[in-house]
Design a protein around this nucleic acid. Structure first.
Lengths: 128, 128
DNA sequence: CACGCGATTTACGTAAAAGTCAATTGAGCG
DNA sequence: CGCTCAATTGACTTTTACGTAAATCGCGTG
């Protein structure tokens, strides 16, 4: 496991710009350490970026992604906080389950569409 | 099956604004018919709106949603077009499969997080 | 030391996806 | 007919998520 990653290393790995990474820092999503003014990204920052990119692909906004990420940051010690956190986790999961239903439906419809295309090709005498 | 829906009926059903529906029309996603200047939405328009909302929840942009929707509009009769369409369908499906992987990973991590919260509660002597 | 190069900061710009507001229209109803 | 209420149009505004440009900094190398 590497100690540190430079900003450009990560921009290449995730195919994003430096501006984007700095923006995520401004937004409090990541907190790379500094050597002088230069940012040094730890493996944990890298993992956070992976989570951010996943969230983006799933259509979560920066705010929603922040909500998820913050849950990982603070492992609360107090009972009330823990229960609240479990509730918030459950909400996010419900959100994700909705997305999964949407996804399966969309995939299903695309399957149908493709099938009808293939049928049409067969009618036209095309050997698939 | 109803003949027509009014714009406000649909804004209530899908919890969106009239502005949004008109915007979707401007963007060519839906084409309600007119009685005078008033829009009348058919069941097919309603189904399109459902597809649009699903696409939005999955993080697709208007342009991406338009790509999907257009595939349903034009059932091409020509072989080349059909093959091209099948290719585009396959691309969208790959996109959706990526989202599904992202989704499962995120759900998995949230499961873990919740478990550790529950554990922590047990340690604190809380009877779940 | 001079230089090149990558990183940073600051500030303004922009595209997408609507929200908001004002003026207008038209259908139905007493 | 006059009124109301939903619907329309057009213009301007807002928010999100960065892009872009300019000026500066600092470190390693020849």
């Amino acid at each position: 496991m590497r100690e540190y990653y430079s900003i450009t290393e990560l921009t290449r790995e995730f195919d994003i710009s430096t501006r984007t990474l700095r923006f995520y820092e401004d937004e409090g999503l990541i907190q790379p350490v500094r050597r002088g003014r230069t940012r040094l990204f730890r493996p944990s920052d890298r993992h956070l970026i992976r989570q951010i990119m996943r969230g983006k692909r799933l259509g979560f906004s920066i705010n929603e992604i922040r909500e998820i990420i913050q849950m990982y940051r603070e492992p609360p010690g107090e009972v009330g906080q823990l229960k609240l956190m479990i509730k918030r986790i459950e909400e996010k999961r419900e959100d994700l389950r909705q997305k999964r239903r949407d996804l399966e439906e969309t995939l299903g419809e695309l399957d149908q569409l493709e099938e009808s295309c293939v049928e049409r090709l067969v009618e036209l005498g095309v050997t698939t």
